[in-house]
Amino acid sequence: MGVVGQRGFTLIEILVVLAIIGIMVGLAGVRMMPDDDRTVHGEAQRLALLLEQARDQAVASGEPIAFSAEQRGYRFWSLDAENRWVPRAGDELLRDRPLAGDVRLAALRVNQASLAAGERLLFLPSGSNAPFSADLALNAAHARIRGDSLGRVRIETREAAPE
Rank of each mutant, 00 (worst) to 15 (best):
Phe67Arg: 11
Leu93Lys: 13
His41Phe: 08
Ser126Arg: 10
Ala106Glu: 11
Ser126Asp: 07
Arg144Thr: 15
Glu52Val: 11
Asp36Ser: 14
Val153Pro: 04
Glu70Thr: 15
Ala58Tyr: 00
Leu18Asp: 00
Asp80Arg: 14
Leu51Met: 06
Ile23Met: 13
Phe76Gly: 00
Asp96Arg: 09
Gly26Ala: 06
Ala69Arg: 01
Arg158Lys: 13
Arg146Ile: 08
Asp37Ile: 04
Gly151Arg: 12
Arg158Gly: 09
Met24Trp: 05
Gly73Asp: 04
Gly26Val: 03
Leu99Val: 02
Leu18Gln: 03
Leu94Phe: 01
Asp37His: 15
Leu150Pro: 06
Pro34Trp: 00
Thr10Val: 07
Arg104Pro: 05
Glu52Tyr: 07
Arg97Gly: 01
Trp85Glu: 04
Gln112Val: 09
Arg146Gln: 06
Ile155Cys: 01
Gly118His: 06
Gln53Thr: 14
Leu94Gly: 02
Ala81His: 14
Arg7Val: 08
Val59Met: 11
Ser149Tyr: 13
Gly62Tyr: 12
Glu70Lys: 15
Leu105Ala: 11
Gly42Thr: 12
Arg7Gln: 11
Leu15Asp: 01
Ala141Pro: 01
Gln71Asn: 12
Ala54Thr: 06
Pro162His: 10
Ala54Val: 07
Val40Pro: 05
Asp102Pro: 04
Arg75Pro: 00
Val25Ile: 11
Val153Ala: 02
Met24Glu: 03
His41Glu: 08
Arg146Phe: 03
Ala48Cys: 06
Ala100His: 08
Glu163Val: 10
Ala137Cys: 13
Gln112Pro: 05
Pro162Ala: 09
Arg158Phe: 01
Met24Phe: 05
Arg72Cys: 04
Thr39Lys: 04
Ala100Leu: 14
Ala160Cys: 02
Ala100Gly: 09
Trp85Leu: 08
